[in-house]
């Protein structure tokens, strides 16, 4: 078994052996459930716009709560020393933990499919935007998870890891809202960085490679920084 997968497996088991996964799932399902059926009962429309519109914001604090312990906890308790003196590469630790947290988020998204099916049985929902929305959410979640892993690699304090991850995630989310407020010259940059700007197109069912590349590069940059942060102990 590869070391990366061994680490992922351990982390996934830890999530489901501790209250973390269940609390996160419950909170997310309650909020998502409200968003789903809000539109249904109040506006009498079977559609998922409310959910897809607000899920990006839910992610800004749900995902840091999932990722905050990943590396920070090991730094604090000293098990990181045990782990990285085994014959594995630093990136394997980072990627293994990234996969574990992303798996939990994927399970979370998978559970909300239950709402989608319910909605669909009441009134047919648009297939394209729904598939696109889920794909987009998964890509966005991957970016948030990578940011969370990175923040967790920076510190041995889980609270600090949470706040840093939340701060970065929320800023990226906010960029989409404040694009009109910044000087015109900065607008393209802010719009480009905005994490849910890239989600909108996918959410409409239009999969543009630029949006996919945006999320994948966010993941790459964050994971590389996390790996460098682990390796920094060896800088002379």
């Amino acid at each position: 078994m590869s070391a990366t997968w061994a680490i992922s497996k351990r982390e996934i088991r830890t999530y489901f052996n501790s209250p973390v996964a269940y609390i996160v799932v419950t909170v997310f399902m309650l909020l998502a459930g409200y968003l789903f059926f809000n539109t249904l009962f109040i506006e009498k429309q079977a559609e998922m716009r409310g959910y897809f519109g607000l899920a990006p914001m839910l992610f800004t604090f749900i995902i840091p709560a999932i990722t905050m312990r990943l590396i920070a906890e090991e730094k604090g308790s000293g098990t990181l020393e045990l782990l990285i003196t085994m014959p594995i590469k630093d990136w394997q630790v980072v990627v293994g933990k990234f996969i574990a947290a992303l798996t939990l988020v994927a399970v979370l998204l998978g559970l909300t499919l239950f709402y989608a099916f319910t909605l669909n049985s009441i009134g047919a929902i648009d297939k394209g935007p729904t598939y696109g929305g889920y794909l987009g959410l998964l890509l966005m979640a991957a970016a948030y998870v990578a940011i969370g892993v990175m923040a967790s690699a920076f510190t041995k304090n889980q609270i600090v890891a949470f706040i840093v991850a939340f701060g970065i995630s929320f800023a990226l989310y906010l960029f989409g809202r404040i694009a009109q407020l910044v000087p015109e010259s900065l607008q393209p940059i802010v719009t480009f960085l905005s994490i849910d700007g890239h989600f909108e197109a996918i959410g409409r069912g239009v999969i543009d490679s630029r949006d996919v590349i945006y999320y994948l590069s966010m993941v790459t940059v964050a994971l590389v920084l996390a790996t460098l942060s682990l390796a920094s102990r060896k800088w002379k």
């Binding site: 061994a6 088991r13 052996n17 085994m86």
Partner: peptide, 21 residues
């Protein structure tokens, strides 16, 4: 002696062996 306290002894040793390939 930092160890993963949330694992059983055999899980922990299996994990170590797996990471070591």
């Amino acid at each position: 002696t930092p160890l993963y306290r949330d694992m059983t002894v055999s899980e922990f040793l299996t994990f170590t062996a797996d990471v070591r390939g």
